[in-house]
Nucleic acid binder design. Structure first.
Lengths: 258, 258
DNA sequence: GATCTACGTTGCAACATATGCAACGCAAGG
DNA sequence: CCTTGCGTTGCATATGTTGCAACGTAGATC
């Protein structure tokens, strides 16, 4: 629809793959060299691409910085990173970290399982996760205030993806109540029939639940019950990350002015 | 120079900061709403921005994926991550991981020091580092083949940034020889007079040096000698990362066909 | 419950903007 | 020395983008 922007997008993609010469850029786009040059110059000014000493163009740090900005709370990622990787090693399963950003819940980190099921998991860092058919969403929603929960769920249309999907607000609310009581959530193939998850909440220094850690496996690898056996590791990990964020489980923050 | 691309860039930036409504987008750009809409639609098709359920636009996963692709070797980052953070904790200093990509050396990870000097360090993930005035470059160059080293240095013009900068190829080559012999490198304020570094090499399973880890501090925080005291931690870290990549220090890979 | 306002979306004509061309500078190679 | 390939600049053209006006919709207000 917007031609020149589409061209710029293509060049960014190319530059991400390998260093790009001007001639190659114009060839691929099928435009004159001067056209490609001007696009690249514009992108370069924004540091979306970078010109190397050899005159080739490569993916720029500007975009990398924006990515990290958008993933927000570098703090969370930095603090969580080591624990997530440890959890992966302990359990052997794929580990996700998801966070509430704006009005959606988004994966902010992922540690793949070395098992061959990793490629089959469609989750990607930066992608939004189903808000009513995932373990991480349940954990986060379960600990939100009623208004917040309403805000996030009011526009949702429940689709029955599989036989276990919670297909209306009432049954989903009941599930959230259960999750809030026991402190962790499951996903029994509610989005994809073969994908199982367990998730636990991450709290910040104020005790607010701001994120969730999950273990994921396809049924061929591990049943939901087998995943539940790893719950101690999962809960330990989410507790450790919360601690790094300044959460003190035994001593809730002192009420102001006392 | 390229107006519509510039506008697209601005919108991406805005979307990275906070969810963006169409009206806000058109206001900021000073264009008609339909114009902003078409730009956003183009970006959305490329997953450079994502449209949320509420109709606002946010930074898209497409760019995040490209960032990670461009940072290359997710392997290296994933394996190194925990060790880098541990090193930061052990030493208290800012930790960098830099990698040879194409014909430049680029920061691929960074763990900030909690000390107040962190903000003064201009290094950024994804940014290229001076190839003749940094400890990480020295370490990597010192272990490259002669041809590779020539390729990377042939187009370089040596500028004397500070009184300690190596300002010509001959003295720099001599420095690289020293670095190769002792196995680690320093940066005695050669780029910025107050910034000190020590760096050590990271090797892959073939024994090739593919990256470098460094400790950085401004002189007010730690002198170069004080940084050198942390060398055991640094060397331990670089060895651990190399091990994770499959490097076996005592048993170099068996020569082929024996 | 009706009206109003704000927002996002589409079709179309006019214009501005991006485009291709041609010419130039430059470096590498024959 | 000439040739070839590369990146870069100025300029006229026309293509693609823009703004307008009108529509649909949803939420707010009375």
């Amino acid at each position: 629809m917007a031609q020149s922007i589409q061209r710029a997008i293509n060049l960014i993609r190319l530059a991400a793959e390998h260093p790009l010469t001007l001639s190659e850029a114009s060839d691929v786009l099928g435009v004159h060299k001067s056209t490609a040059l001007r696009i690249l110059q514009t992108l370069e000014a924004a540091r979306f691409v970078r010109k190397t000493g050899a005159g080739t163009y490569v993916f720029g740090s500007g975009l990398i910085e924006l990515s990290e900005l958008a993933l927000g709370s570098m703090d969370l990622r930095q603090f969580a990173s080591a624990h997530l990787r440890a959890l992966q090693r302990q359990t052997g399963h794929t580990v996700h970290l998801a966070q509430l950003t704006g009005d959606e819940i988004v994966y902010v980190d992922k540690v793949d399982s070395p098992a061959f099921d990793a490629v089959k998991l469609p989750s990607r860092i930066g992608r939004a996760v189903s808000i009513y058919a995932s373990a991480v969403s349940k954990v986060i929603l379960a600990h939100l205030s009623q208004e917040e929960r309403d805000r996030l769920l009011s526009h949702v249309t429940f689709e029955r993806h599989t036989s276990t999907t919670f297909a209306d607000r009432e049954s989903f609310d009941a599930e959230l109540t259960r999750v809030a009581e026991r402190g962790w959530a499951t996903d029994d193939g509610e989005h994809d029939a073969y994908v199982m998850c367990v998730a636990a909440p991450v709290r910040d220094s104020r005790g607010q639940v701001i994120a969730a850690v999950s273990l994921t496996a396809i049924e061929v690898i591990a049943s939901l019950d087998q995943l539940k056996e790893k719950l101690p590791f999962l809960l330990e990990t989410s507790a450790l990350i919360s601690q790094e964020l300044g959460f003190t489980p035994e001593h809730p923050p002192a009420p102001s002015a006392s």
